[in-house]
Every structure is written in structure tokens, then in C-alpha cells.
């Protein structure tokens, strides 16, 4: 059974690598897609990519750890990234962070026990005049205040991941 799953994984990775082309230069894009697909890049995934591209696993690992949007550890289903940059900071991002930490019972950098949420900081995402702002996976939320944040998080917790206006 276990062996069987490994094979499936290897085949999936192979087909993604082939989609981009078996070239060294496509490594980052391949990792980006795999990261989206599996939520994080396990050692196994990285090793498979290395052997497909015929480069050393440490090189693949080096790229995977360099970029903050690539995860080498598992993350929650929803990754909350709160902007920690200056404008959002001046506009009260601390309150947002405090609220989320309380609501989810985790600190920045942690994942909830049920594996639903990971809380992180991110750099400015260009929503500064509407700050504080945050990303949940690919959805942007701005003009946040503690009440709004609670509402948004509850919505995700219930399973709806569409943008709240």
C-alpha cells in the first residue's frame, strides 16, 4: 500500500515536471505548483523533483527554503498572512494579530491543532492605503478591524472560503 502511494506521488510529480519541461530553469515554477498542490514540499517531493531534473537534492532544497512562499513544513489548509509592514503597522496590525491569536489560540508561526489555520506575517502587499491588510491563501482582505477579522475567520472555519466584501 505504502509503496503504491509513493509510486503515485512519483508519477504525479513526473507529469508536472514534464508539463514545464525537464529543465533546470523551471525548478522554481515546478516547486510553486507542487507547493500549491500538496500544501507543502515534503522531503519526498523534493527528492522526486531532484531526480526528475537530474540535479542534486540539496540544490532543490536550497531553492525551496529560500523563498518564503514555498513551505518545507506542513501548513494549515488556510494560511493567514497578516501584513506586518509599516503602514499597516501604524494602522493597528497588532490588534489584528492579537485578535487572530486569541480567536485561534495560536501564535504567529503556528498552526491550529485541527490543521485548518496557519498564522504568519508577510511584507507589504500593496494594500497600504486600505490597511491593515491580510491574505488568506490567495484572497486579500483589507480595512480590517478586530470585529471584521473574527467574522472572516469564522467564515473560513465554517468552510466557506469566498471573499467577504
Amino acid at each position: 500500500m505504502f509503496r503504491y502511494q509513493e509510486e503515485i506521488l512519483a508519477n504525479e510529480i513526473k507529469s508536472i515536471v514534464e508539463k514545464y519541461g525537464n529543465k533546470r530553469e523551471n525548478l522554481l515554477r515546478i516547486l510553486q505548483e507542487l507547493n500549491d498542490k500538496y500544501n507543502y514540499l515534503s522531503e519526498q517531493v523534493l527528492q522526486n523533483v531532484a531526480s526528475c531534473l537530474k540535479i542534486s537534492p540539496s540544490e532543490v532544497y536550497g531553492v525551496a527554503t529560500f523563498y518564503s512562499f514555498l513551505n518545507t513544513k506542513p501548513k494549515g489548509k488556510y494560511v493567514i498572512r497578516v501584513c506586518k509592514t509599516i503602514v499597516c503597522d501604524l494602522n493597528g496590525k497588532d490588534k489584528i494579530i492579537n485578535t487572530i491569536e486569541n480567536e485561534l489560540g495560536i501564535k504567529v508561526g503556528e498552526t491550529t491543532k485541527d490543521g485548518l489555520f496557519t498564522l504568519e506575517y508577510t511584507n507589504c502587499m500593496g494594500m497600504c492605503n486600505q490597511g491593515p491588510a491580510m491574505l488568506i491563501n490567495n484572497d486579500i482582505y483589507y480595512n480590517l478591524d478586530p470585529e471584521k477579522v473574527v467574522e472572516i475567520i469564522e467564515k473560513y472555519a465554517r468552510g466557506g472560503d469566498s471573499n467577504v466584501d
Binding site: T85, I86, V87, N123, C124, G126, C128
Partner: peptide, 12 residues
Amino acid sequence: DEGDPGAFMDRS
């Protein structure tokens, strides 16, 4: 790759 804090010209 606009990354400067407080900048959103290129995005817009």
C-alpha cells in the same frame, strides 16, 4: 516585484 513597504504603484 514591487516590494518596498508602503508602495503599490506598480500593482495599481
